[in-house]
């Protein structure tokens, strides 16, 4: 009997989870990845363990990547894009462009797992992102810590004060982002904790609107963060960051205690850029005949139903549907894989 086949679009945490679950059930998977390698964004994150795991879950993604490489039922197609997509009986068929070549594939179901793009600050220059080298995004900090091992190795020994700025592009109606990116507060807190374990003296400030904490044992984590780790929480989103004419970064914000404008000096500023819909979502949604939500994320078939789409046999997995942390992404992708499996075997 010929094996059932599923197309998974996107080789990040969600796509790999769905692919592995399907393969474990004997389904053949085409895993289409637009980049040169699978793994997605989370494969670039650093480990945030201090004396114990701090539950960032980035390691899970690398474990999955290894499993995918070893799984004969998953055919990974890197540098690949969906060129054409058509109904084919109960299933679908697609032309996938890989480099200069076109590959025709037929399959019975589809899982879309295209992830996200970090908010593009574009021409917004108030945070001097792209202008000052020590104004970086959270993802860039993750990448630097992963590649270099320590903050000092990545940014030199002179970093004495670090500021994290939350909600850059999240919860911002002025740009139409009326949603919370969900993960930034926790990863900023965990990164702060990690840096504290390396540098006992460095000053660590987190600028925030509302602190989005959740998870078991967060109460203790939070207490430790404020008390023993001495991370300072400042309820304000800075209005301006500038380097010139000083050699440190000047951050201007309004003090919530007295309403006064304050300026303070920092050596490194980490922007928690919003999770925004992946650039190709519109095009992909059109090809697949599925919908986008008001922010441009791929839309589930109803308010709560977040995996099934308006098309039978096409399911959403992970952050392409809306912001999620890694465990939530994995759970979502497992659910999507289950739906796809039930669809092709029904």
């Amino acid at each position: 009997m010929e094996r059932k086949k599923v197309l998974v679009i996107g080789g990040g945490a969600a796509g790999m989870t769905s692919a592995l679950d399907l393969a474990a059930q004997g389904v053949e998977v085409f895993l289409v990845e637009k980049e040169a390698d699978i793994g997605g964004r989370a494969a670039e994150y650093c480990c945030k363990a201090t004396d114990e795991c701090n539950r960032c879950a980035a390691c899970l993604v690398l474990q999955q990547k290894e499993k995918v490489a070893q799984e004969p039922l998953i055919q990974v197609l890197n540098n690949a894009l969906i060129k054409e997509f058509k109904k084919n009986g109960k299933g679908y068929k697609a032309t996938v462009a890989i480099g200069g070549q076109d590959l025709a594939l037929e399959f019975q179901a589809v899982i879309v797992a295209t992830g996200f793009d970090p908010y593009d600050l574009g021409r917004r220059s108030e945070f001097a992102y792209g202008l000052e080298k020590n104004v970086i995004s959270g993802l860039e900090l993750e990448r630097a810590l992963k590649e270099k091992g320590t903050l000092t190795a990545a940014f030199g020994p002179d970093v004495k004060k670090i500021g994290f700025i939350q909600c850059v592009g999240s919860r911002d109606l002025s740009i139409g982002h009326g949603y919370c990116s969900r993960v930034c507060c926790m990863y900023a807190a965990k990164l702060a904790k990690l840096i504290r374990s390396e540098l006992p003296e460095v000053e660590l400030d987190i600028f925030y609107m509302d602190f989005q904490s959740f998870g078991k044992g967060f109460g203790d984590f939070d207490k430790e963060l404020r008390e023993s780790d001495k991370v300072k929480f400042i309820r304000a989103i800075p209005s301006k960051i500038y380097g010139f004419p000083y050699d440190r970064l000047t951050v201007r914000f309004s003090d919530s205690l007295n309403g006064q404008q304050v300026e303070d000096k920092y050596d490194l500023i980490v922007l928690s850029l919003a999770i925004t819909p992946a650039a190709g979502n519109g095009d992909l949604a059109q090809k697949l005949g599925i919908n986008l939500d008001e922010y441009g994320f791929l839309a589930g078939s109803s308010d709560v139903e977040s995996m099934a789409t308006s098309q039978p046999g096409i399911y959403l997995a992970g952050v392409c549907q809306g912001p999620k942390d890694i465990p939530q992404t994995i759970g979502h992708a497992k659910a999507a894989a289950g739906m796809a499996r039930n669809y092709i075997f029904s």
């Binding site: 998870g215 078991k216 977040s306 759970g331 894989a337 739906m339």
Partner: peptide
């Protein structure tokens, strides 16, 4: 029962459970 949860997150968990147990269907 494994930490307060609601809304879409609850729905997502339910579907993850459905996927897991349906292996025995």
């Amino acid at each position: 029962c494994h930490g307060p949860i609601h809304g879409t997150d609850l729905y997502n968990e339910i579907e993850a459970v459905v996927a897991e147990v349906s292996a025995f269907a």
